[in-house]
């Protein structure tokens, strides 16, 4: 088991944003996390990434307890993450952004540069490598976000709505990129609103609602699950959907 999150909870003051979510990820999987706004998927995501410390439960990565580890320790162990709103280093060039990631495994400048260039080529940013990162628009920044974290050579990649805000054709490009990353042997956990993305990419889906996981299974199973429809569309729709089901 690559990642084992057991009974993870997190409260903000009196608000229990996440109460006892569990997730097992085996190496080579693509797992999707979905749920309506405020369902706790981002909280769970940030707990796994090390940005938030869970108030309960524990998280193991490769049998190492990372429940309370810092974000930088997560990166070192091989858990990489992107941010929902791209956190681009706008004052640096695109190559320099990626080099910051590459320095984690390559302390020497020339090695880091070579590794960064490889990733830039892989993610299709080569034409603009030396441009300042501020010149990139949202799709470019999302791509750079992925390139930067790939440069840290993660074993597990956590994508936080990496495809949100893209046009349909850009989404297709991004899906292809995620596929190529997966083909390199990197395990992926993806939070996404766009159902199309989850349906095409994820092998397994975990559905959140009001801080708990309400369903898990293949994308097809989950979409047909009454509790899931209820969570997304309300009870009446769920009844209707149930009546139409074969």
């Amino acid at each position: 088991m690559l990642l084992r999150a057991q009974n993870v909870s997190r409260s903000f003051g009196a608000l229990l944003a996440l109460s006892g979510a569990s997730l097992d990820v085996t190496e080579g999987e693509i797992v999707g996390l979905i749920g309506p706004n405020g369902a706790g998927k981002s909280t769970f995501f940030n707990c796994v990434a090390g940005d938030l410390t869970p108030t309960g439960g524990n998280i193991l990565f490769n049998d190492v307890d990372v429940t309370r580890a810092t974000p930088e320790a997560h990166a070192k162990l091989g858990i990489g993450r992107t941010f929902q709103v791209p956190a681009t280093f706008v004052e640096l060039s695109i190559l320099e952004n990626v080099m910051v990631g590459a320095f984690l495994r390559h302390p020497d400048r020339n090695d880091a540069r070579a590794a960064a260039l490889e990733v830039i080529e892989f993610t299709g940013l080569k034409a603009v490598a030396s441009a300042p990162a501020r010149t990139l628009g949202t799709p470019g920044r999302k791509r750079l976000e992925i390139a930067r974290v790939l440069a840290t050579q993660p074993k597990l990649l956590l994508l936080d709505e990496a495809l949100a805000g893209l046009t349909p054709s850009e989404v297709q490009d991004a899906i292809a990129l995620v596929r190529r990353i997966h083909a390199k042997g990197i395990t992926i956990v993806i939070v996404e609103h766009i159902m199309e993305v989850i349906l095409t990419l994820a092998q397994r889906v975990l559905v959140f609602n009001q801080g708990v996981t309400i369903a898990t299974g293949t994308p097809r199973e989950v979409v047909d699950n009454t509790a899931v429809i209820e969570a997304y569309l309300g009870r009446r729709h769920a009844r209707n959907a149930g009546a139409h089901a074969p």
């Binding site: 974000p71 930088e72 990166a75 941010f83 990631g101 440069a151």
Partner: peptide
Amino acid sequence: RAIRAGERPARSLGV
């Protein structure tokens, strides 16, 4: 420079 640009993303990259 990464720290100056943003501590949170910098930490996520292992800084």
